[in-house]
């Protein structure tokens, strides 16, 4: 009995030691990856002339202010959320200093695959066949570097007024309307509502001077 217990104990101890080793090795990388995910989203949605970013992660909503070279606020980013069809959408939304949307990025969603999930769908370049053809002919299409393309649904938001954006047809930045995804009206509406209400509220409060910037 004692021998059994001892054997079990030794195995567990050895395994735990090995695990701690792996944990120590990966700990920093995991923390970096998590931090990078947010800062990457912030960087992607803010206007291009932003040089430095200050974050206020504990505010409600969580927001980030981007400053230009001269140190003036050039844009804001905020985490907006709204109940979608089967999950709560979390979206990082960026605007310039006048409240025009400069970018969006989905942080979290568990919408129906093939329907609501398409808010993050990117139009693929080429097709399987051209990629396979590329493998044989030697010219690698994937190696052409460039900024990753924006999802086509979110692209509609660019240039819209954040506090006025709504669903409509046809999509038009001048009237701040975007077109819903076929078969996923609820998700599309939730995305729009999240942007309009949470971002609108942030802009109002910034105007009123309630928040630091």
């Amino acid at each position: 009995m004692l021998r059994l217990g001892l054997t079990l104990f030794i195995v567990t101890a050895v395994m735990a030691a090995a695990l701690s080793g792996v944990y120590v090795l990966t700990k920093d990388t995991i923390a970096e990856q998590e931090a990078a995910a947010v800062s990457e989203a912030v960087g992607a949605v803010l206007p291009e002339d932003v040089e430095s970013v200050t974050g206020y992660p504990s505010e409600e909503p969580e927001y980030y202010v981007g400053y230009d070279v001269a140190g003036n606020p050039a844009g804001y980013a905020a985490v907006c959320d709204e109940n979608g069809y089967s999950s709560t959408l979390q979206i990082m939304v960026g605007v310039d200093e006048t409240g025009v949307i400069t970018g969006t990025s989905v942080l979290y969603q568990q919408e129906t695959p093939g329907l609501g999930e398409r808010i993050g769908e990117v139009k693929a370049e080429g097709s399987l066949w051209s990629a396979v053809g590329g493998l044989f002919s030697g010219d690698d299409a994937a190696s052409e570097a460039g900024p990753p393309p924006r999802p086509w649904f979110q692209e509609q938001y660019l240039g819209c007024e954040a506090d006025e954006v709504s669903l409509g047809s046809p999509a038009d930045p001048a009237t701040s309307t975007v077109q819903a995804i076929t078969g996923a009206t609820i998700t599309s509406r939730a995305f729009t509502t999240a942007v309009r209400e949470d971002m609108g509220e942030l802009l109002d409060r910034l105007d009123a001077g309630e928040l630091e910037q």
Binding site: M15, A18, Y23, T26, T29, I30
Partner: peptide
């Protein structure tokens, strides 16, 4: 129990490595 501990250890290793990279 020993098998389970061994398997679980490797699973956690996979978990950590995947999260990191």
């Amino acid at each position: 129990p020993i098998f389970i501990v061994i398997i679980a250890t490797f699973v956690v290793i996979v978990e950590l490595v995947m999260k990191a990279y």
